[in-house]
Design a protein around this nucleic acid. Structure first.
Length: 943
RNA sequence: GCCCUGGUGGUGAAAUUGGUAGACACGCGGGACUUAAAAUCCCGUGGACAGUAAUGUCCGUGCGGGUUCAAGUCCCGCCUGGGGCACCA
């Protein structure tokens, strides 16, 4: 909002949005207008927004975009007779509050509560129809009690691959007791083999360790993303290009004992489920990429070392006869075993160098080819040839088996590697020129491949897999890129993990002792020993008998000191809204069966691979274990586009106290400086405002060519530091919530990214005033009960039709236009007929609810507009008896001709040709063809 | 490199299954009302050319081809903005 904008006047019977909006917000709140019932005869509709993290900066104009859209939809559905659940809450655990706590010593709970209060005030101003009685906050013990409870369910489950579902761990124990690991297919960290007898011999600690290998929440020693600057580990989706997503700090790989969730077990179901839900293609693609399914084969290569064989994963088993060497990751467990004495020094040096390089360096340096020969050989399963075994960091320890069969002729990395180290290249798929580059297409005929010769790639793949299976040296396999999610964080401000240890063996707390509340600590920092902040708590031992939390003492066991990640609470909050005050269960059985799933979910695309994947995963686990009745949590999902800021920057001459206007800037050596967008209209800068802004600028000179000093504008992300943030409060103050709501919709398609600009807001504001005046001809409220004209009915019903269509297709920008057209027409028709204006108020109410309520009341209604039935569209008012035919010649429209509808094609043609304008067009030409589309167009082909 | 998206006036954008390109707004220009300003209302507004004018002709939806009576829309090949995945075997 620029200071140059003019304050609209408020007059007696003028549209006084301030009074109106306050009045109706109060009314809705007092009457609990939007409270949803859990027992209703009506059909349900669950409309959800991604709940916000309450940051200290408050809302900016970008945040409400999605909330407005979902609110329009929710209000529309209420008018359509649905029982609508439209809740809001706060994703309240998180890093910023903790970091603020570290700096100031203030408890994050205090800052969080203050921020929530501010958010609530801002949200309330915008007239959203939230059912606030269902508000949830992830940081409240009443809420996170159930987050902890779900963690316990995960701990208590294992994944049965054969049945493709999670089952209680007790059933796995029963199986081990009877049959050991035989006849069981379970997702696990490490393949184990033992008999029923072995199991019975195991002591309790060993049994626990074995079970951890199968639990969906498990503790394991694994490579994690460690971020030293944040002092915590991060999940894969929290790391971007080797840096932390929040803050951009370097991330390194570190081996640590960590809690993880076995999401990889659900890879296929997470993939399959995408076909059942109405999400955008790009979002589904993101998830598919993240899950990263690839089909191929596992092949076992025998080696010179009789007891050791190497398993590789390949998507091109058809090219096996072109495989001339093997490459294993430098961290592969057999590297030492394969290394011969002659090669020992070289291998050790290579491994050391590889370990030193960070993930980031490795990626940046992808083109440099490096590797080292181990000195050992593998044996080709079909030719019996010796294949040298190399190590190289282009093979990743964490993907597949950490080993590849190199086929240089048909893989570009293998090709480069073979060229560099002068290894043999054998062409096995005809079609390329392997003297120049690898031929990687999956098309062509197999050659040099024994029994595969002459086959297509596809046929060869099937045949070779069968052959491998027969030799027991391989089988078809599907591999997924998705990794299990690291779940522990070395932070304070998160849900405590409800786990205690007896002699190092983890146990989960008894659910009746939940919640395990966050303890008070002396500082929100790691301990001197490097333990997480919770290790500072004085009382952090649990007595499983009594449920007490206390000091270290007999009967009390130490509790876990890491906390859950930010995404824990948000992975199930949509379920809690259904039944937020249930103290017996996370959601009541019948209530969950009534609401089932979110019908419409609106939020930002940045959560594509984090929140949306985890939430789907948790839902599936809860589904498998019988706690919820549907498998996908979000039926339809829309990503609202981001609203960007438009920064204002001025040129400052380097080392001088001078600013220079944009048109002269090229003459000087300048740097650009962000200034507050309040000082600017278009590119014209209020130089006095800049001088007064900062003391240091008071004596600056402004160089300019003409009357105005110009800045440059640039579209950027809205942020405090760029002084380009537009606060919705200011817009509401000047134009009102109804204008802001409609303007944000009017900006363009919901899903599109767009920069914020207030340039057009007056158009929407004027519309609402025209709308108001329609009900106040001559300044006073007046409607007539006489019958409206057919034109008026037509204008209304055209709008009803359009608004209905637009809302169900989420095309809110065109709805706003439709309203404008309608009001312009009714204005022209001097319409103030109740029969038109009454349904029109209902029609507008999802978009601009305050003005609609006020006019509805003035029309003499006493019960509020929110549950009033939506106007029904009636085709009969739109029936036309003539149509303005556009008449084209060779595809170019030349004139229009009004003709009665219902004419036969021949009659239309005759009428058109009889027109003198047609005759003029046809002078000196012959008609070759006449196309008549009744009610659409006439096209005459002539030449 | 692979995948997903988008590209239309000065600006934000419309255009349902191929059928009048630019609806609706903003901005800009002109006018009415006013002592004046604001507010409001009215008219014009894609570009080029011709005409005193009404009007007419041509060009125009990122670029180049194609299909069709007709293409912003369908097909082929490029250019380009945004996003995702990536030494992923």
């Amino acid at each position: 909002m620029t200071s140059l904008n003019l304050q609209p006047k408020i007059l007696g019977m003028e549209y006084n949005f301030k009074a109106i909006e306050k009045k109706w917000q109060q009314y809705w709140s007092n009457r609990k207008t939007f409270a949803a019932s859990n027992t209703s005869e009506k059909e349900k509709c669950y409309v959800l927004d991604m709940f916000p993290y309450p940051s200290g900066a408050g809302l900016h104009v970008g945040h409400p975009l999605g909330y407005i859209a979902s609110d329009i939809y929710a209000r529309y559905k209420r008018h359509k007779g649905f029982n609508v659940l439209h809740p809001m809450g706060y994703d309240a655990f998180g890093l910023p509050a903790e970091q603020y706590a570290i700096q100031t010593g203030q408890h994050p709970d205090i800052t969080t509560k203050a921020n929530i209060k501010r958010y609530r005030a801002q949200l309330d101003q915008l007239g959203f129809s939230f059912d606030w009685s269902r508000e949830v906050r992830t940081c409240e013990p009443d809420y996170y009690k159930w987050t902890q409870w779900i963690f316990i369910q995960l701990f208590d489950s294992w994944y049965d691959v054969a049945q493709q579902k999670a089952r209680p761990i007790t059933e796995l124990i029963a199986h081990f007791e009877n049959s050991g690991t035989s006849d069981i297919e379970a997702s696990c960290s490490e393949e184990l083999n033992f008999t029923a007898g072995d199991w019975q011999q195991f002591n309790a600690a060993k049994k626990s360790a074995v079970l951890l290998n199968y639990r969906l929440a498990y503790l394991s020693e694994s490579m994690v993303n460690w971020c030293p600057a944040l002092g915590t580990v991060l999940a894969n989706d929290e790391v971007k290009d080797g840096r932390s997503e929040r803050g951009g700090h370097p991330v390194e790989q570190k081996r640590m004992l960590q809690w993880s969730l076995r999401i990889a077990a659900y890879a296929q179901r997470l993939l399959d489920g995408l076909d059942q839900i109405d999400w955008t293609e790009s979002l589904k693609e993101s998830q598919r990429n993240w899950i990263g399914r690839s089909e191929g084969a596992a092949v076992t290569f025998a080696t010179e070392h009789n007891d050791l064989s190497i398993e590789v994963f390949t998507t091109r088993p058809d090219t096996i006869f072109g495989s001339t060497f093997l490459v294993i990751a430098p961290e592969h467990e057999y590297v030492t075993a394969f290394t011969t004495t002659e090669q020992a020094d070289a291998i050790a040096a290579y491994q050391k160098a590889a370990a030193m390089r960070s993930e980031r360096e490795r990626m940046a340096d992808a083109k440099t080819i490096s590797g080292c020969f181990t000195g050992s050989y593998a044996i080709h399963p079909f030719t019996g040839e010796q294949m040298p075994i190399w190590i190289s960091d282009y093979v990743l320890a964490g993907y597949g088996t950490g080993a590849v069969m190199a086929v240089p002729a048909h893989d570009s990395r293998d090709y480069a590697f073979a060229k560099h180290f002068d290894l043999p290249i054998i062409e096995v798929v005809a079609g390329g020129d392997i003297s120049q580059e690898a031929y990687t297409e999956k098309e062509g005929t197999l050659i040099n491949s024994d029994f595969l010769n002459g086959l297509s790639v596809k046929a060869a793949q099937q045949k070779i897999i069968a052959a491998l299976e027969e030799k027991a040296q391989g089988q078809g396999r599907i591999n997924y890129r998705i990794r299990d999610a690291i779940f522990g964080r070395q932070r304070y401000w998160g849900e405590p993990i409800p786990v205690y240890y007896i002699e190092g063996v983890p146990h989960v707390m008894r659910t009746e002792h939940l919640p395990l509340t966050l303890p008070e600590v002396s500082a929100y920092l790691p301990t001197a020993a490097g333990e997480p902040p919770l290790a500072r708590a004085e009382k952090w031992h649990y007595n499983p008998e009594t449920g007490e939390i206390g000091n270290e003492q007999p009967g009390f066991h130490p509790l876990e000191t890491t906390t859950m990640p930010g995404w824990a609470g948000s992975s199930w909050y949509f379920l809690r809204y259904m039944d937020p005050h249930n103290s017996q269960l996370f959601v009541g059985d019948n209530i969950e069966k009534y609401w089932q799933q979110v019908d419409l979910y609106i939020g930002g695309s940045e959560h594509a691979t984090g929140h949306l994947l985890y939430a789907r995963f948790w839902q599936k686990v809860l589904f498998d274990r019988g706690w919820v009745s549907v498998e996908e949590p979000f039926k339809k999902l829309i990503n609202q586009g981001m609203i960007g800021g438009v920064s204002a920057l001025i040129h400052r001459i380097k080392d001088e106290k001078k600013f220079v206007s944009a048109e002269l800037a090229h003459q000087y050596d300048t740097s650009l400086l962000h200034i507050d967008i309040d000082f600017v209209k278009d590119t014209a800068v209020d130089t006095e405002a800049v001088k007064n802004w900062r003391e240091e600028f008071a004596d600056y000179e402004f160089l300019q060519a003409g009357d105005t000093f110009h800045c440059v504008r640039e579209a950027e992300k809205m942020s405090k530091g760029k002084f380009n943030v537009v606060n919705p409060d200011d817009v509401v103050e000047k134009y009102g919530a109804d204008t802001l709501r409609m303007y944000e919709m009017f900006l363009g398609p919901l899903e599109q990214h767009k920069p914020w600009s207030t340039e057009g807001i007056s158009g929407v504001y004027n519309f609402l005033r025209k709308f108001w005046r329609l009900y106040h001809p001559g300044g006073n409220f007046a409607v007539t009960d006489t019958a409206p004209s057919p034109e008026m009915l037509k204008a209304l019903h055209k709008t009803i039709k359009k608004i209905n269509e637009d809302i169900v297709s989420f095309s809110f920008n065109t709805s706003v236009s439709a309203f404008m057209i309608c009001v312009n027409q009714l204005n022209e028709l001097k319409c103030n007929h109740r029969e038109i204006l009454s349904p029109l108020a209902v029609l507008l109410s999802p978009f601009a609810p305050h003005i609609a309520e006020e006019l509805w009341e003035k029309l003499g209604n006493q019960n509020g507009i929110s549950h009033e039935p939506f106007p029904e569209f009636d085709e009969k008012h739109l029936v036309e008896n003539s149509f303005d035919y556009p008449v084209s010649f060779n595809g170019k429209m030349r004139f229009k001709l009004s003709l009665p509808l219902g004419l036969a094609n021949g009659e239309i043609e005759a009428a058109v040709l009889a027109d003198e304008r047609a005759q003029k067009q046809l002078e000196g030409k012959t008609i070759r063809k006449v196309i008549v589309v009744p009610g659409k167009i006439v096209n005459i082909v002539a030449g």
